[in-house]
Design a protein around this nucleic acid. Structure first.
Lengths: 189, 189
DNA sequence: CTACAATCGGAACGATGCTTCCGGTTTCAA
DNA sequence: TTGAAACCGGAAGCATCGTTCCGATTGTAG
């Protein structure tokens, strides 16, 4: 489709660095962080940052697209795993971990342009499809209750883990909460 | 402590109106809504609003304190109910419903002044204590698994329902998600 | 090595939103 | 009824943050 013209060496280096820093900062402090701050932490001027990403939203989009693609890949890989229940719960945990970022993103998207929404819409559809496949398979194998759909399962997992991050609950507590979610999803209606 | 000097009739009326409108607007659209907008919807000038609440944060604090007090009252009422399990799950659902508001608040509090944090800290402690009492009682009655603490249970419930609101899941779906949480909390470790 | 084209940095601009200020209005007690 | 104290409204002030612009710098082809 788009031929990715080779970037100059320094440009390539800087682009990577921006993505790296922005991902860490956004994940840790939310996207209320000023763009100047990200440039500063990356050791660059804001002008440089804006040449690579024409808008703050574009930068955030690039990050989310990257994560999303990784997630879609994982979900598809597990699509034919031996144990349907295990496969489903594994991807559920992964999605929940990324949840915090996606959450902020969706918040910011309430008033976003149509292009951006569409650009991500496709990926979101792919992820939803893959996730739904795993869910249905797990339900057929009686590893997950039948009275729950993909949206709800995702909301439950991402919401719970997102709250953990906000409240500063440690990895031990997070694991415990995930266990409760798992047990709830396994229980009979 | 503080003698609540009687307000003038119009002042009292306006104060009520501001609280009412702000609560609805913040709950519906988050606290990113400009203060001018709240004044406009209340049919007042911003000056008026600022005389009652010296800061946007103070306004939000007043709202949250009100909700919190109501919650504490409810939690204490149920402290001696016949069925410990029912009492616990009832208050858990109530807290989760309010969760969205509290969530935004806690977000905004990351960089708040020490006074505000302390002012709410006391109430938060009261709520935590009452909630923990209900949880322990339910655990003794074997209505809730033992390997979960109050923080985690709250995070789970508020997070899950918060995500529902963000994603626009309807009342039916929310009820289903709460059911899953309940089943998960009842399951044996 | 040279010269050109792309990149870099950060000062300056514009928009948005919180807060203050003050002249006019309303309430209420005497 | 009347005077003063409290309240009202919204224009102006101020800070923050996203974005643009352009002279200086640096990588790279020939």
């Amino acid at each position: 489709m788009t031929l990715p013209k080779p970037l100059r060496a320094d440009a390539e280096r800087n682009r990577r660095r921006v993505l790296e820093v922005a991902q860490a900062v956004f994940a840790a402090e939310g996207l209320a962080v000023p763009i100047d701050e990200i440039a500063r932490r990356a050791g660059l001027g804001v002008g440089t940052l804006y040449r690579h990403f024409p808008t703050k939203e574009a930068l955030f989009e690039a990050i989310v697209v990257g994560r999303m693609q990784a997630l879609v890949g994982e979900a598809r890989e597990r699509g034919a795993a031996k144990d349907p229940g295990e496969a489903f719960f594994a991807i559920l945990a992964r999605i929940a971990e990324e949840g915090a970022v996606k959450k902020d993103f969706l918040d910011a998207l309430a008033s976003a342009g149509a292009d951006v929404v569409r650009a991500l819409g496709a990926l979101k559809e792919e992820l939803n499809a893959a996730f739904e496949h795993l869910l249905k398979r797990a339900q057929r194998a009686k590893a997950v209750r039948r009275d729950v759909d993909a949206r709800e399962a995702m909301a439950l997992a991402t919401g719970a883990l997102g709250a953990c991050k906000r409240l500063g609950i440690d990895a031990r507590g997070r694991e415990r909460i995930l266990a409760i979610v798992r047990d709830g999803l396994r229980a009979a209606p």
